[in-house]
């Protein structure tokens, strides 16, 4: 009985997932494609829950669907501004069956390989190793243990990837102030929501040690609060001073690296936490990482350097002036 229910649920989820994916890849209208993609991301979060991966579900909802979706929508909005870049239907794709066949071929080949892999596999894989070392890791959420202890080095590099993307975006030029001041309804909502998001993110950070949650989910949520503020048109003059902003951006990766190196310098080895301290160190690193991830994700959403980042103070003044102009002409009801 339950098997049938599960089976039906699986089928429904998968069909919806495939439909949304297909829609986002093939829809004639680019805007529709993006909406489908966001739906796809949200549905994927459900799939993660179904597959008992709540950590991933949280991250997917916040980052995969939420922030990526916001970015895509922003890109769409820019695209609709310039007349020659409005949604062009992809005729080549529609008329050409070759890619479809290729993708089917690839899928069949990989599917067969996957079947064989499941057949030869030891179903335990590394799970046993993770669970048997969980006690020494300092946390009881196995995903957090892998992320911040067993494979902490990957996570360190991942934070570096995030930093790289942000620096790359900032290198492209100034962020253009683009959002009009919100009306009372939206502003009110955002004002109510922001503290709540901060609270929830702190909760997620704290709970990550033994339950689904952690720095990435918490950071993403915090960044979501920032993005909301921006969408509601709060100008970036609210950014802290350059040095603090810069410090926040690098907080996670620098503290992480520093902990690793200090441990090495005292003779333990890179990122080799003493078991007694592991829990505390992980929380410390995660706290810094949350801050860093939040700042990074939020700034990445701007699509360029905020005025506060700039070295050159003279340009700062000019940009802020431009901000003001934009706000005054903003179409407030």
């Amino acid at each position: 009985m339950t098997d049938v229910v599960w089976g039906l649920l699986d089928l429904l989820l998968i069909l919806a997932l495939l439909a949304l994916a297909w829609g986002s890849l093939n829809s004639r209208n680019l805007q529709r494609a993006v909406i489908y993609f966001i739906g796809f991301g949200l549905l994927l979060a459900l799939v993660w829950v179904r597959l008992r991966a709540p950590d991933i579900a949280l991250a997917e909802a916040a980052i995969g669907a939420g922030l990526t979706g916001a970015l895509l929508l922003a890109a769409l909005r820019d695209a609709s501004h310039s007349p020659d870049h409005t949604d062009r239907p992809d005729r080549a794709w529609r008329l050409n069956p070759v890619p479809t066949l290729l993708s089917l071929g690839l899928a069949v080949a990989l599917g067969l390989a996957y079947l064989q892999a499941l057949e030869i596999a030891d179903p335990q894989r590394l799970a046993v190793a993770v669970f048997s070392h969980l006690e020494q890791s300092g946390v009881s959420n196995p995903v957090t243990a892998v992320l911040l202890n067993f494979r902490a080095y990957d996570t360190l590099l991942e934070l570096a990837v995030l930093l790289t993307a942000l620096l790359g975006i900032m290198a492209l030029g100034q962020a253009r102030p683009a959002y009009a001041q919100a009306g009372p309804v939206l502003a009110g909502l955002v004002q109510w929501l922001t503290p709540l998001l901060i609270l929830v993110s702190a909760y997620l950070l704290w709970i990550g040690a033994h339950a689904p949650g952690g720095a990435f989910q918490a950071g993403a949520l915090l960044a979501g609060a920032g993005v909301l503020l921006r969408l509601a048109g709060f100008p970036d003059s609210h950014f802290p001073a350059a040095l603090i902003l810069r410090g926040m951006v690098i907080a996670g990766v620098s503290l992480f690296l520093a902990v690793g190196l200090v441990l090495m310098l005292v003779g333990r080895g890179f990122l080799d936490y003493p078991p007694a301290w592991a829990g505390g160190l992980i929380l410390l690193i995660e706290t810094a990482a949350t801050l860093g991830i939040a700042a990074t994700l939020m700034l990445a959403f701007l699509g360029g350097r905020p005025a506060a980042w700039s070295l050159d103070t003279s340009t700062t003044g000019r940009i802020q002036a431009a901000d003001m102009v934009r706000h005054n002409t903003g179409d407030n009801p």
Partner: peptide
């Protein structure tokens, strides 16, 4: 409560946009 707040706010925004 959260969903209500969000959906009413977005409904308001969408409607406002459409009217404009």
């Amino acid at each position: 409560l959260l969903v209500m707040a969000a959906s009413s706010a977005s409904a308001h925004l969408i409607a406002q946009r459409a009217r404009r």
